[in-house]
């Protein structure tokens, strides 16, 4: 009985820690069909989708800048997707997001070993180079930035989006 209670208490603590106010929402698995649900979920709202990975040098530089951008632009939905080929590093991924100030954005991690298929759903022309940013306007128009984005370009796009509201 005591053991069972201890077990329940342990589970309770696990949940409590995961759902404590201010705690980071868990990374969501990005699987077949997720891309369409991301598009549906943000339809009508200006959305910045950022693809990155923990082993990508330029991503490490860009991620904190994006964290600041997200903080400064609450009117823009920011979504990050860790697109490293092997999704076996949720802890490292979450840790980098936390350090970049991106704990509270909607964060995904590739969770299908068949990455060709995941990428094909997003953009058949994308071969996996990261970082990569897709700017989705209110009307669904997608502008893709390959490589590190210039924050001035993001500011400009954001201003356009928010002024047309």
């Amino acid at each position: 009985m005591r053991r069972r209670f201890a077990g329940l208490l342990g589970l309770g603590l696990l949940i409590a820690s995961a759902s404590a106010p201010g705690a980071a929402p868990a990374l969501k698995p990005f699987e077949r069909g997720t891309w369409q649900s991301v598009l549906r979920g943000h339809a009508g709202r200006p959305t910045l989708v950022h693809f990155w990975g923990v082993t990508c040098g330029p991503c490490k530089v860009e991620l904190p800048l994006l964290g600041q951008f997200a903080k400064d632009h609450p009117g823009i939905d920011v979504v990050t997707i860790s697109a490293d080929l092997v999704p076996n590093l949720p802890a490292a991924t979450q840790s980098m997001l936390d350090r970049a100030g991106l704990s509270s954005t909607e964060n995904f991690i590739f969770n299908d070993g068949f990455v060709e298929r995941l990428r094909f759903e997003i953009d058949p022309g994308w071969q996996g180079d990261i970082p990569r940013t897709m700017l989705i306007s209110r009307d669904g128009t997608i502008t893709t930035i390959e490589g590190s984005a210039e924050m001035t370009d993001l500011e400009k796009w954001s201003a356009q989006q928010l002024s047309t509201h």
Partner: peptide, 19 residues
């Protein structure tokens, strides 16, 4: 909730998630 979370974590490590 704990089981649900456990399931979600397990799903993150299923074989289809791996190369």
């Amino acid at each position: 909730l704990a089981f649900l979370q456990g399931t979600a974590l397990a799903q993150m490590h299923t074989q289809h998630a791996s190369e």
